[in-house]
Each structure stands twice: as C-alpha cells, then as structure tokens.
Design a protein around this nucleic acid. Sequence first.
RNA 1: CGGGGUGUAGCGUAGCCCGGUUAUCGCGCCACGUUUGGGACGUGGAGGCCGCAGGUUCGAAUCCUGCCACCCCGACCA
Length: 490
Amino acid sequence: MSKKLTKRSEDYSKWYNELVVKADLAENSGVRGCMVIKPYGYAIWEKMQAELDRMFKETGHQNAYFPLFIPKSYFSKEASHVDGFAKECAVVTHYRLKNDENGKVVVDETAKLEEELIVRPTSETIIWDTYRKWVQSYRDLPLLINQWANVVRWEMRTRLFLRTTEFLWQEGHTAHATKQEALEEAERMQGIYADFAENFMAIPVIKGTKTEGERFAGALETYCIEALMQDGKALQAGTSHFLGQNFAKAFDVKFATKEGKQEYVWATSWGVSTRLMGALVMTHSDDNGLVLPPNLAPIQVVMVPIYKSEEQLEAISEKADEITKELRDLGISVKYDNRTTHKPGWKFAEYELKGVPLRIAIGPRDLENNVVELARRDNLTKQVINQEGLAVVIKKMLTQIQIDLYQKALNFRDSHITKVDTFAEFEEVLETKGGFVLAHWDGTSETEEQIKNKTKATIRCIPNSPIFEEGKCVFSGKVSTKRVLFAKAY
RNA sequence: CGGGGUGUAGCGUAGCCCGGUUAUCGCGCCACGUUUGGGACGUGGAGGCCGCAGGUUCGAAUCCUGCCACCCCGACCA
C-alpha cells in the first residue's frame, strides 16, 4: 500500500482525527493513547461541566472527591465488577526510583508496595468502602454524591476522545433505602443525560436499557442514551446503572430502618465523559470544520473588521465596541478579532474551522450604510443586517441555530432507523445504509452473540418506549414481543 | 495481544526498491515592499543527530539486526 493511501485514507476516523486536531480541540500526546485537550477544547468541556453540575445540584446531588488509587483488595470484593475491569487496570507496584550503577534511573525493587494500588478505572469500590462508614441510619439516606475526576482504562486500542487511556468524566454514586428509590434515581439520571444531550448539545439520543451482555460490570440494570454519528455508527453517550445491593453487600453497607432492622442499601452509579466531545464533533461537524451549538461555543459571535487604512480600522473598532457591549449585555460571548497580522479571509476560515456559530463582518461600506454582514456557521448563509437592534436579532438567531442543529441531527438520525424483518435485510441495511436497525430479538444472549459475530452489530438498547408487537426474532425465528435497536457502534 | 502500515524542519511530504555532491517540494515562520469584502503576491532569509541503538561499507535517509513510537484492522471497551 502506498504511503498516501495510508495517510490520506477516506476512513471516517481519519477525517475526524484531522478535524479535531486542526480545529484545535485536542491532540494525541503519544503517551499510551492519552490526549492533551487544548484550551479551546477545554473551554467546551468546562461549559459541559457547568451545565451538568447545575442539573445535578438541582436534583439534590453534591460533589465530593475520592482517591485516585484503589487498593487491589477492594476490587476483589465484588466478583462481576472485577471480571469487568481486571483486564484494563493500570497497577502501581512501587513507590521509589533510584540510579543504577550506569547512572540510569530505574525502579527501586526494594520499594515494593505491600499491596498494589489500582489507578481507578471507576470508583465504585473505593466509594462504597467509604459509604460503609457514612451510612448507619435511614436518616443518612439517600446519599447523593457526584465526583468530577479522571480515570484510567488500559484499553488495547484507543481512539481520540472516544476511548483514550485516561479520560475526564463525572461519576455519580448514590445510596438509597429502597429498591424503588434507587431505580427512580437511575432513571432520573438517564433523563438528565438525555435532556443535556438534546437540549444543550443538540444531539438527539434514544433512551433505553442494555441487554445482559452489554450491561455494566456489577449492575442489575443499565440505562443508556444512544446517539447516532454521521457515519452511521452508534455511540453510547451516557449510562446510568441500577446496582441493586451488590456493592452494599460486597462492602457491608447497612443501615438501621425506622423499625430498627438492619438492611443493605440500594445503589446507583452514572457517568458521562469527554467522549461526549467526540459525539459533539461527530454529530455536527462538516467539511469546513467544527460546528458548535451556541450553548457550547466558547465564542458565540466573532467580529471581523475589514479595512484598508488605520482611520478605517479606528472607525470600525468604535462601532465594534458598541456592538460588543450590546451583545455582552444580553449574555452573549463575543470576540472582536482586530489582529492586524491576519487578513479577513484567513480569519473567516479559521473561525469556521473552530465552529463559531455567528460571524459579523464590518467594513467601510457597512459603516456608511449602517449595516453589518452576518454569517451563520451551521448553514453557511450570509445576510446584511441593520445595526439597529442587531443584538436582539443575534440573540434570536443563536437560539434558532441551536434548534436547527438539533433538528438537522434528528432528521438524520430518524432517517437512519430502519425496521427490518429478515436477516438478509438486516445485513443489507448494516452494510449499505448503516444507522440503527429496529428488529425483533428472541431475548437470548446466544442470539445476540451470534448476530454480533456475523455482522459486528450489537444491541445498542432496548428502547424505553418500545414498539410492542408480536413478531419473530430476525435471527432465530423465535417469538418476540418487541423490537430492539441494533447498530454497529464505536 | 494478533495482522498490516508508517517514522525525513512546526505541519504535510519526495528520495529508500537499485547506497555516492550541499536531502526535495508545499504550507507555516522571519524581513522588506505591494495588498486587505473568503485562507494575498513578490523578493530575500532562518529552520534537519532522515525515530533510537548497533552492524555491513571507502561511503548509509537508503542495505541488515534489535528496540521504540504512532496509525489502521481485529479481539476488548465510556
């Protein structure tokens, strides 16, 4: 194979990688599939954090922080949990380095840890070990805690944003007195995630539950939100787990009920990660670069002056300052790019790459006519607008862009949900069209596994609002009562 | 961890098969001038342990061995 083909493959992920790097969001640092998130990308993550944090707190949650290192013994306490994560743990075994006889830095073998420490791949174990000390009475419940943290999962294969070795996320861990309450919490958080994805990120998602095979290690039920990327692959955008009493029993977290009986608490955990930024890029971007929904854009409006002389620039800047103030008064983030080091055309291209939702251009002609040129990033249209009342027009347009982006993604998603009734059709759709396939399934793990082996498609979820109808499993022909959602996934 | 591919300036690359002047080209960078309503142009300039370590050779970016890194495909996964 020639170098060019390898380097310039039309493969989607390549396009995505290049796009992300060029768009200044992140870059591969080369350290075992870790990534450096650049300031512009991090600003987006901060916006996501702020909104999620607000939603968590409104529903009674508090933030806390637990240790990065988890003693190995904690892990072995919940059997299915260990099985799920054992193969991808980074382990700390020593605590000191030294110089050897050649002056090379080596691990000091005498400084071996009594018990190895696991760099958290998720914090259930250490948190539940702590909860044992915090919960004694029904009065201590519910315990609703969230943590913003980094976690490490030593995956064999990494992919920028979607599966980096270290990633940032939030993980919520709650303890409840009753099963019912815990179930409600898990569903509530799924709802919050769906709300956040759709209304804040403009990414339509399908709410559902995972099959036994796809469930989180240690969970009795996994609620998820599934999104569809532009290449027809599905992406799990967030999960919320009902953990039953598994962790309470493993870590001996009991409480005294009103009646004075000792009972195990009921648990949930839920999380979203920097993977959502991958979803953002892969849902909205086009060939010109990123397209950011106004809610997430670090810069919502950029203003570019067009001028020939110093005097013109001065006059334009004066007007630009006025407009900036008006926009800021309406809570709109705006950047006036008066750098003299780059030409307007260059700036236009750069802010398109960065996905800034709206661009204002002002030149001498506009000053004369009391107008500006306003360009939308999402549909690349331009129009000339009167300077009177500009801020209000922009405010409305930002709202409209947010809605239009969601609608566009929704139309794409909905047109890529295909109902099929035969396996031939099933394979055909996955091969040619991609997207979600709605098909009957007999409910067995064996069938699910065989379909996966044959087609690479997995059951993304059993939708929360399924189409209940009599049918026959698309693979085995056995009786089925509802359709489930299949897709190839990231 | 298995299969494949690639490492040459900040980025993208030519040269490698078939060893031989001062390592090619584009973008970017610096200076000056002309430009400025969609990534400007001209002239001049700076920037390289050719991934690392050995080996073969009069001579290695090029051949051989080992190592490392990254990318793609699989298995695993938020």
